[in-house]
């Protein structure tokens, strides 16, 4: 990819970031909601951990932090409720995006990067700050952990994006992909470790779920934040995320090619 192409994707990301700035009130409402559920989930964990010191290697402080980090990541990784591509296909606006000399996948990936960057600043960090004020969180102990966390979070966004993008693309065939998206949201909520850490899953299920792409959307970045992974484990976890990111992006590109072979735009 040459420099002008990179510039284009940067400009796309920038505009999506700017676009989000228009929704200040909505973001504030979302922030309050995320913090409210962060409070409830952290409180539940504290009660659950009262009788046992650690569960699956998590202390009560770890669990509280896990709850707040997952709340902070909700809109950054955007695990559910994303219909932007589906909407353009349903309304037919997709024809504008397809009649441009850029990669359709790259176009949406860049926009999602801009969206995620916005939510890191205006949702994720404020939610963590509120968690710190209300409960006191367990923060990474060294700058290196922050670097690893940033890498893991970036990969989490890419994996999540490619997954959402694929689900949205089904609209090319079904004309309304909201049903399958809702079903997928329920699955992801559970398998990503959002509801509870995958490490708390029963033995027979845990290994498999940890290898699935969904673990890379929440569980792995949270574990990096909590310094549960280091050395080879850390490299393996990031490698797994990278593997799924590449695999999903390739799949997405294949589906884009198939889909654009059969664009049936709604409304003629």
């Amino acid at each position: 990819m040459d420099r002008t192409a990179l510039r284009l994707y940067f400009e796309l990301a920038k505009r999506q970031f700017q676009r989000q700035l228009a929704f200040r009130t909505a973001n504030l409402a979302g922030l309050v909601t995320n913090a409210f559920f962060g409070y409830i989930r952290a409180t539940v964990f504290i009660v659950a951990f009262r009788s046992q010191g650690t569960i699956a290697g998590y202390s009560a402080a770890d669990a509280v932090t896990y709850a707040w980090v997952t709340q902070a990541l909700i809109m950054v990784v955007h695990l559910w409720g994303w219909y932007e591509v589906e909407r353009t296909i349903r309304t037919g606006d997709v024809v504008s995006d397809l009649s441009k000399p850029f990669s359709y996948l790259g176009f949406w990936l860049a926009k999602d990067a801009g969206r995620a960057a916005y939510f890191v600043l205006f949702r994720g960090l404020p939610v963590l700050a509120l968690g710190q004020v209300m409960f006191g969180l367990r923060w990474p102990s060294s700058p290196l952990v922050w670097v690893a966390f940033a890498a893991s979070l970036t990969l989490a966004v890419v994996v999540s994006f490619a997954w959402r993008f694929l689900l949205n693309l089904t609209a090319f065939w079904t004309t309304d992909a909201r049903g399958i998206n809702q079903l997928a949201a329920a699955v992801v909520l559970f398998l990503s470790g959002f509801v509870m850490p995958i490490r708390l899953f029963p033995d027979w299920l845990r290994g498999a779920v940890l290898a699935l792409p969904f673990a890379g959307m929440t569980q792995i970045p949270c574990d990096v934040f909590l310094e549960r992974l280091d050395g080879a484990d850390l490299a393996g976890a990031l490698g797994l995320q990278a593997f799924w990111a590449v695999a999903f992006l390739l799949a997405a590109q294949v589906v884009v090619v198939l889909a654009t072979r059969r664009v049936v735009t709604q409304g003629g």
Binding site: T4, R7, L8, E11, L12, R15, Q18, R19, A22, F23, T91, G92, D93, V95, S96, D97, S99, K100, P101, F102, G267
Partner: peptide, 27 residues
């Protein structure tokens, strides 16, 4: 291309932002 019943402009951004972007889209 202009599809009269659709728009390629970014709904939430000032018009000039959509126009400026095209500079990069088409180099």
């Amino acid at each position: 291309v202009v599809f009269g019943q659709r728009t390629q402009l970014w709904w939430d951004l000032p018009l000039i932002e959509s126009l400026d972007l095209l500079r990069y889209v088409y180099r």
